[in-house]
Design a protein around this nucleic acid. Structure first.
Lengths: 158, 158
DNA sequence: TATTGTTATACTCTATAACTATA
DNA sequence: TATAGTTATAGAGTATAACAATA
């Protein structure tokens, strides 16, 4: 028989956005641990994948894809270059194409395996009947919240 | 007719955990803006709600509910107390019960309205057929990732 | 003039360690 | 000996401003 002692209630559990944040923080912490064993931060992993899929991509383009400030991208790329994971090829006088080196491709592939396994477990933890809704739900939440930014910058661009 | 110019691809869009993180970051940024108009940070809003639902809650209990370190909770509570939003009542020599003041209740109610509206819009952006899966999916993802922590600390406690 | 990359810097958030007082 | 609260501090992560070089 359980005691009647009251545990504090969390009144925020009813909010999708709260669940979203708590789940994201927990997931990020867990995956970061695993990537740490490859001496990779989450953003470094993401960057390797984006560069691998888009060889010769410009720094500024990678910034747009990953929503990272130019000022923060510079030391990130520099760090990967210093480790021999990426290389730069001049496009014109002010921009360079970034590509994976051989060892960059190796680490990208290895870390992709780690993340894929993690993501498979994550998906497996979700009730089977709900799984096909994961993509639509998260994409909708993302787009509806990112929408403000997008419209602001796109209004300027159009 | 669209140009054939290639935009960089994001190879991470296939990963639920990536979508989770991007959606969470976007949602957090957007809601934080709105709460900023009430001079509330997201964690302060959450804390007000937890205290309001659990009058007399101890600081350490609020830490567990919101997953905030004791060391970071202290200045948070102090800040709310300084603004006259919460009050402390001694429980024993070392712990105090935290409750909302009158104006704390007012701000908690007002901000709850703001967040509720936000969350309703968030939910409305999701395809109707998927909506009932939001809770189960996010809860499952949260629990499956928080699980590690829980088992570690619970093993110690048992 | 706008874009690309860079540097410096500040601000927020979070994590750790050490301390006091009390159970 | 463990718990509650506090303080100080360090480390990420992120944001802004300014600059040089180039389109």
């Amino acid at each position: 028989m359980a005691t009647t002692e009251q545990r504090p209630e969390d009144p925020l559990l009813q909010f999708p956005g709260y669940l979203l944040r708590r789940a994201s923080l927990a997931s990020t912490a867990r995956l970061s641990e695993q990537l740490g064993e490859l001496s990779l931060k989450l953003v470094e992993f993401s960057l390797l994948q984006v560069i691998g899929t888009n060889p010769g991509i410009k720094q500024s383009e990678a910034c747009q894809v990953l929503d990272v400030q130019r000022a923060n991208m510079a030391p990130l790329i520099a760090g990967l270059e210093k480790r021999g994971l990426v290389s730069r090829t001049p496009i014109d006088g002010r921009s360079q194409g970034i590509s994976l080196t051989r060892s960059g491709r190796a680490l990208a592939a290895k870390s992709f395996g780690v993340v894929t396994r993690f993501e498979e477990e994550l998906l497996a933890s979700i009730p089977e009947a709900s799984r096909k809704h994961v993509g639509p739900i998260l994409t909708a939440m993302w787009e509806s919240c990112a929408g403000v930014k997008f419209t602001a910058s796109m209004a300027r661009a159009s």
